[in-house]
Amino acid sequence: MRGGGAGAGLSERLRGAGGLTVEERWAVALLDPEAPTPPDLTSWNGSDPGQRFAVYRNNVVVSLVESLAQTFPVTCELVGEEFFRAMGREFVRARPPRSTLLARYGEGFAEFVDGFPPAASVPYLADMARLEMHCLAALHAADADPAAPQVLEAALREPECLPALRLRLHPSLRCLRSEFAVFSLWDAHRGELEISQVNPLAAECGWILRSGLEVRLLPMCAGDCDFVEALARGNSFGEAAEAAAGDREFDLGRCLATLLRWGMVTSVNGIK
């Protein structure tokens, strides 16, 4: 790009039709293959700037689609590479990254899939994208050490404090409820479950968490999600237990044991 010349002010020179700056026109043209090559482009060796820009534009979109394919591997397998990449290109153009951290790119992809008419024949596709986005968030969540066993034992010695106890949960822990068997489908696509055993139309709930460096998916019951969500809202142990008690399948002891054994309880407050 050439700098501003003498005479007209720089900002006036940079603002073209539609009131866009050079940078804005460049950004628009990068994502829209129909848009003309931004004017004022030159190349150092005299080759055609239009052709060079087209290569660059293609690389931008292809690399972002590639990043989506790595973050959503099972979503990709469910529809096949070709369909996924076509859908990915649409998403990249509609929702380009807002952050320079490519590792977290994909926010909003599940909602996009929900509203993408060609994907409607795979009703669980958006929830699978939701599940895989939770995996990415769990992977990048902050570290936190589990509460020491002595703290839990101290709480047990003061049973009258238990209802008001505040349990803080690990930053990686999140819940997903789906009308479809996304947890089983995910396992099947990772080779841990026979696909013929999975009924995709069975509703499933579960937790997504990170233990050490490994993201884990645990199918749980709806009450387990109610319990974790209530704690995350800042409710006490007693309130969270009541929020989950509507689910007949819910077993408070087992739920808490699972949280403890994966190191998901990071602090316990309210012991006198």
């Binding site: 047990l156 049973p159 009258e160 050490g212 142990f237 237990a241 009541e242 002891g253 994966w262 190191g263």
Partner: peptide
């Protein structure tokens, strides 16, 4: 929402602490 008695909370809490500490259930990942 159903009322959960303090006794039920105490029982669940102690079951959980015991279960989580048993070697069969302890997560080896750490």
């Amino acid at each position: 929402n159903r009322k959960v008695t303090p006794a039920a909370l105490a029982l669940a809490f102690s079951t959980a602490v015991t279960l989580a500490a048993s070697p069969a259930l302890a997560a080896g990942d750490k």
